[in-house]
Design a protein around this nucleic acid. Sequence first.
DNA 1: CTGGTTGCAAAATTTTTGCACTGGT
DNA 2: ACCAGTGCAAAAATTTTGCAACCAG
Lengths: 144, 144
Amino acid sequence: MTDHVALLKDSGLKATFQRINILETIEKYGHITIDAIYEEVSRIHASLSLATVYKNILLMVEKKVLVEVPVAGQKSKYELKKEDHIHLVCTECGMVEDKPLINSVDTLIEDMTKEEKFALSSEQINLYGVCRACQEKRDQQAAS
Amino acid sequence: MTDHVALLKDSGLKATFQRINILETIEKYGHITIDAIYEEVSRIHASLSLATVYKNILLMVEKKVLVEVPVAGQKSKYELKKEDHIHLVCTECGMVEDKPLINSVDTLIEDMTKEEKFALSSEQINLYGVCRACQEKRDQQAAS
DNA sequence: CTGGTTGCAAAATTTTTGCACTGGT
DNA sequence: ACCAGTGCAAAAATTTTGCAACCAG
């Protein structure tokens, strides 16, 4: 049993041919849009429906198997869930590359500009969580 | 002449009633989606066209007056261009809040979890720039 | 004046939905 | 065999486009 099959089963999802191939394609490319997944998987499974890809991506994001990577000026891409890392986004070709978060965020950003492998122009940092107001709303509901 | 009029003119754009009101709405809300801008500005200018909002947002992003803030699980929001900062995104209500980048990124993330005002669940860091391959492509074209 | 901008309507694109059929477990 | 999952086609939602009328500079 492959990793992907196990991953799906652990998340309470059936290991269908479509899902396994969607996961393999995402792993192969690292970050990929929904329509690109459709094109790629269609090659080996011509009857695949785009609606199936949509439904599965949504579901797998919900189940935390996948993570949506929203990118300014591009359609969202999807990646397998993994440890925290940084995305380098090329504003010319659209490429997204992972950069492991070995040291601190700040160190990485500095390194980036020094090494000059990547001509940095801007950064976007999003922290996701539950805001104070929504936490209080939760507590009230729990108490009632 | 208001700030917004100056901002538009400096960017080579005509200061139309529509554009000024779009900018005012964005400033008022901080971060807002295109359809929400349309709703808001329509109140004082009923004949506004949604297409005009789309065209202007696109144009103003291109002219670097606005910045697109892509958010996982939501439609992109737009903000006025300003100094670097972090976005706190509430996964319950969708709210986006700015957090100034006074110290380091790492310090801020730590503070966030300690203060517990915001229940952090995940982070997304995108660095935008030009990748090595695209830089070389540029250099070649410059040389020829 | 006049070229950039708007509003409208239509087109294109993207995403969602309902439902009969299929396939994993 | 059961029910989650698929594929299809249609609907809904979102974004883009072309063009005549308009208005800021």
